[in-house]
Design a protein around this nucleic acid. Sequence first.
DNA 1: ACCAGTTATGATATTGATATCAGGTAATAA
DNA 2: TTATTACCTGATATCAATATCATAACTGGT
Lengths: 319, 319
Amino acid sequence: MQDIARQAGVSAITVSRALGGGTVKAETRQRIVAAAETMGYQLNHAARNLRQQRTSTIAVVIEMQPSAARPISDPYPMSLLGGIIEELSKADFSAMLLTAEKFMRLPPSVDAVILLGQGFRNDAVALIDRCNHPLVVWGSSRSDEGRHVVVGSDNVGGGRLAALRLLELGRRRAIFLGDQGHAEPADRLDGFAEAFAAGGGCVIDAIASDFTFIGGHQAMRTAIEAYGRDFDAVFAACDAIAMGAVRALIERGRRVSEEVSVIGFDDAASAQLFSPPLTTIHQDWHEGGRQLARKAMAMVQGEAAETTLLPVRLVVRAT
Amino acid sequence: MQDIARQAGVSAITVSRALGGGTVKAETRQRIVAAAETMGYQLNHAARNLRQQRTSTIAVVIEMQPSAARPISDPYPMSLLGGIIEELSKADFSAMLLTAEKFMRLPPSVDAVILLGQGFRNDAVALIDRCNHPLVVWGSSRSDEGRHVVVGSDNVGGGRLAALRLLELGRRRAIFLGDQGHAEPADRLDGFAEAFAAGGGCVIDAIASDFTFIGGHQAMRTAIEAYGRDFDAVFAACDAIAMGAVRALIERGRRVSEEVSVIGFDDAASAQLFSPPLTTIHQDWHEGGRQLARKAMAMVQGEAAETTLLPVRLVVRAT
DNA sequence: ACCAGTTATGATATTGATATCAGGTAATAA
DNA sequence: TTATTACCTGATATCAATATCATAACTGGT
């Protein structure tokens, strides 16, 4: 800024004002901006951050472990990220992408933290709390007891929608596939079980499955071995599980849609390409990302932010 | 650090050395680390960055426009990101995620830039060059003429593998689906066309398609209208196109695998879930991300880095 | 000409860590 | 005892921006 100041015949502080939002005579500002342009000037964020005691940066912590249960190729973090970045960019905030491990090993200097993970990593949450960073979490508030701001889909409502659809089709004996150890599937099952029972149906079993096609396939086989043909509906915790289940059902000679209905959760891109196209509950991840970012930024400004449930909707396809 | 220094009975600079990698007596370091721990100290990165004139941060620029041609739900950026972050974390670098627009509007202070985009955004590249940031690009070096360091899959080789497979199956009349305006599909077609011709085959047409299922479906219909049944092979620029093409072929009564073969590119997760499971060329995105990160960091250290082609492999499934 | 009020600019101090240079201590060798 | 080395520690200046306070210039009204 000193160089630009010299070039434009003003002081450095005036340059700062001209390039930032300060009050500077229009003509002077023009001269300064022109000088900055020709000199290829770029703001030194480190200096600004140091002086202003804030970074305009928000850490996005992702569970990046290539775990078999939740492969990294999963589209959902990317959809959330898209929304997050869109919203942060509007307000000239930046997103710093980190794994939980990295965050704990060398906490970055950021103004707030967005945590994307299946359920809560309690150690990570504890550390973030200790840093006194505003924290917004994607997922379910079930196990959090209101301690943090959570943005997530209305999983209970989604389960309810699935139940109503299956009841409407005349189904009365359902099996749930998914890991209740995670808060989101647990919420989905809760909503499902309650509404299904209220409509005269019965959830005859809930079988654990990781979030994969293979997991769903195995869980469905287990169910078939246990119950034979004595069920007419399947509700899966995610689309991958549902697709694995459909495949397993077809392999064992059951006619999906005609005599057994399957509903997934997510409305992943592959759900409509699957054959048969999958009936599922749609989550709006992009909007979820935007809300996460908005709340995080609000909290940086010292405003309060509330836990929010995003509406979901039933997408009827062929299963 | 002043506070810790007081607590530990040393000077601030010694604290810096103890927490960084400086030479400090083991006992003193212990005392300092303990004090830092109990006081919940966290390094101020802004100050360090300012003093050291580097940020240990690398910008990852993504084409985040939710364009119809390349929806954001695409898994490939996530896979690359996974590899990038894994490698950066090891060296205590951070990843700052940005759209190209944001980068150009308010260039961040970073040590290097990784550009993930289908093809080159020339305006973005020009700006990055002006900032004198080390730059590593994911994609094809075809249109870059060696000006930048590029990491990408061996698209030409992948095309060749597809050609050899189709020749082996006795196919001789192939149609290519994909947008040659992008460097990567263009490379794939080049390798394919050359090897297919060398084996006595003929690429009878190359039809433009965006990177979606719908795009592939439409392009395939166009091809069928133009050529009827007078072709026995399809090579698609990506899996989504290939799946759309398979669907179109089946709709028009052609028996995929028996009398027309289809090969995709990517080995996306959905390729093996598709029915029929898709034969395709596998790209190792995770490794690609790691290489991008390694090269970017090497360039920050002032080391040279070379353009690299990652090997691909044929995955034979049912098409 | 004077004043109040606004607007535009400048001087200085400050942010937290660390590079650099200098000083001090302990151990070993002469 | 002194010199030599290796090792540890401290003082100071510095990185590039901006908050704060002070000053200058202008405006319009009396």
